[in-house]
Design a protein around this nucleic acid. Structure first.
Ligand SMILES: [Mn+2]
Ligand SMILES: [Mn+2]
Ligand SMILES: [Zn+2]
Ligand SMILES: [Zn+2]
Lengths: 140, 140
DNA sequence: GAATGTATTGCGAACGGTTTGCAAGAGGCC
DNA sequence: GGCCTCTTGCAAACCGTTCGCAATACATTC
């Protein structure tokens, strides 16, 4: 469904700030911080204010169109995706990757079975070392 | 090992703010926000300043004695624990529980095998509905 | 136990990202 | 186009956290 339809369905207007913020997010290959989004939005339309970026992010999150990740100290934004897609964060270079982990579904079942808890969203954040950053050997 | 020894080993002094912050954290059953920690610390010793609480939290985290969780918008603190202990956050009442999920180890293996990534710490955050908060039925 | 050297603290001010109040502006609908 | 209302830009307020610095208090030595 189009952004416009989703907004209209809930009686929100399709405005330029919303359009541009959404475009920036959906065209990006990676998670973006609020500052990065504001910067790119401003590049495309200098007339759009930072506060509108924040307001739009809050709205899109409310509509489940985007998700906010709190992987590190600064939170980042991206279009919503399934929770079986987990996040690998390299401790060395900071790169964040997506990875599809089949076991997440099993984990969901395990929790439902053993925890007296009804899971909805599972968020798996894995820190470690990416392929480009060979593990540094221990000091001699 | 005692807090004092761990500090001394790295040439840090055992001071009253550090002692009290650590006591508050280790005596608590649940995650605490920085504000809650500062409040309780101040109750025990009104002479201890908020900035010392922040400095101590940073130090204890550096020493891997405490961990910072970014489960919701405000981050929370607790004594460090194994990453097989995952976090269940109730969407309704906000309660955070610990749960031991055996599958986390399998997940680690799966990632190492399929992702070209060397995992160190896995952080699983599950939102859902706890036993005390029966799921609300959908509107008719 | 006092003296010494240095890490650490309390304090208040600064910081910076986010939020807010409000008048001006622009969607959507007829 | 005209109307109504939602949304925006702007600038100020907010607020949790950090910082600089002189005063303090640890730990060590005598
Ligand atoms: Mn993602
Ligand atoms: Mn925990
Ligand atoms: Zn890397
Ligand atoms: Zn609950």
């Amino acid at each position: 469904m189009e952004l416009e339809d989703i907004l209209r369905e809930r009686d929100f207007r399709l405005t330029r700030p919303r359009r541009v913020v959404w475009d920036v997010l959906s065209e990006s290959e990676r998670h973006l911080s609020a500052a990065e989004i504001a910067e790119e939005v401003h590049r495309r339309d200098p007339g759009i204010n930072v506060s509108s970026v924040y307001r739009t992010l809050a709205l899109l999150a409310e509509l489940d169109l985007v998700r906010e990740s709190r992987l590190t100290e600064t939170s980042t934004w991206e279009p919503a995706h399934a929770d079986a897609v987990i996040h690998l964060v390299c401790e060395n270079c900071g790169a964040t990757r997506h990875h599809d982990a089949a076991l997440v579904e099993d984990l969901r079942a395990e929790i439902a079975r053993t925890a007296d808890f009804s899971p909805s969203v599972i968020d798996v954040r894995v820190s470690g070392t990416c392929a480009k950053c060979p593990a540094v050997s221990a000091a001699p």
